[in-house]
Design a protein around this nucleic acid. Sequence first.
DNA 1: AGCTCAAAGCTACTGTTGTTAGCCATGGCC
DNA 2: GGCCATGGCTAACAACAGTAGCTTTGAGCT
Lengths: 219, 219
Amino acid sequence: MPRAGLDPAAVVAAGAALADEVGFAALSMGQLAERVGVRTPSLYKHVVNQEDLNRRIAALALAEAADAVGAATQGRAGRDALAAAARAFRDFVLTHPGRYAATIGVEPTGPDDPIAVSGSRLLVAFTAVLRGYDLAPHDLDHALRALRSSFHGFATLQSAHGFQWSADVDDSFEWLIDLVDRGLRTTASRQTGRRPGPDRAAAAPGAGGHGARARTPLA
Amino acid sequence: MPRAGLDPAAVVAAGAALADEVGFAALSMGQLAERVGVRTPSLYKHVVNQEDLNRRIAALALAEAADAVGAATQGRAGRDALAAAARAFRDFVLTHPGRYAATIGVEPTGPDDPIAVSGSRLLVAFTAVLRGYDLAPHDLDHALRALRSSFHGFATLQSAHGFQWSADVDDSFEWLIDLVDRGLRTTASRQTGRRPGPDRAAAAPGAGGHGARARTPLA
DNA sequence: AGCTCAAAGCTACTGTTGTTAGCCATGGCC
DNA sequence: GGCCATGGCTAACAACAGTAGCTTTGAGCT
């Protein structure tokens, strides 16, 4: 019985590919073992357990997404850069739905966690897009979150077949890009201070109480 | 041994509550059975299997979300309606993360599936918001998808602790609402035809081989 | 060449979870 | 008071994640 010549990177790459095929939720150690030509327990020589595998797949996906978005924005600015970044991001999610799903809900264990490093790189790639707009410095974080929310939301909904009525999905995505572009271009001189409104307190019951403030300084 | 007096609705409600507490991925039949005071196999007298339970939880969540968003927009218009709908939606997702997660990825089996019915109601609630903006009729679907993507993306990312750096998350959400509002207000006379760009094809490497292509006509 | 030994594979096993089969008690209804 | 659909139960199976402990490989050293 010859050795399979595996190493952690090969296992993770195969796991990511398998997740893309069968869906992240359906990824199992048994299937992965069969895929790489080995019995299930042998996988544990390369990854500590399934959660570790998931985290490594997530780190890989974030790094690849950062590369794709970063490459797409090279030499572009303004709306061109925004559209290129958005399309590159969505294309990545649609062609690699399983590994991207692995990134949802993972939390880096610290600033040196590959998940944090690659996640930061992805954010930096999106930040480059914002340089083409005339934003006040204290609006950058908000704009970054808005970008990420919009494109993440669209890509994951489409990936999950969430758009089931008739209008063309690609047209809708271009429309979203335009919406964000117009919103960002009309932002410049705005004040972002929270306006005092009576319904703010009423609308935020604060049931959760899990404030995400001040965790790891990612950006 | 007295009867527990269960019925499908009670099982689903308990399952939704449990999912909110422990997370949708960690929802198990055993835990749910213990929660409702019954042995695991007895649950199968009320739901056909776990997937059926998930679908029923999803339908419940969509109905509740539709109610919340619909109620929030009553008597409001324009930016007020948009902000109220957005806050109601995010509050629902944050206070009921487990049951909302159940809605991601479910596909209705047909137009009479409760998932489709409640999903449509939620979309109708968001459509009411769009009446306050001066949109061309053929932009309505695109605008609806943009709304849903943005708020869904923000709420799910926040629910998954996806925002880990320092800026205040509530401020970011208000900022997103403003961004969408400005984008919608400047939409009125735009053309939505896709502009031809050379990078559309180049940005899709198709590495996976199980392409998402041809689901919707790409060109 | 032959030895060494850590790394990488294996079989056998445990505990957990979803699910089915088949049995028995409950309690509303005539 | 008896009927019987309903809802509960125990016992079992299959799939899965993970552990223990053994064997084999093969690269590096003498």
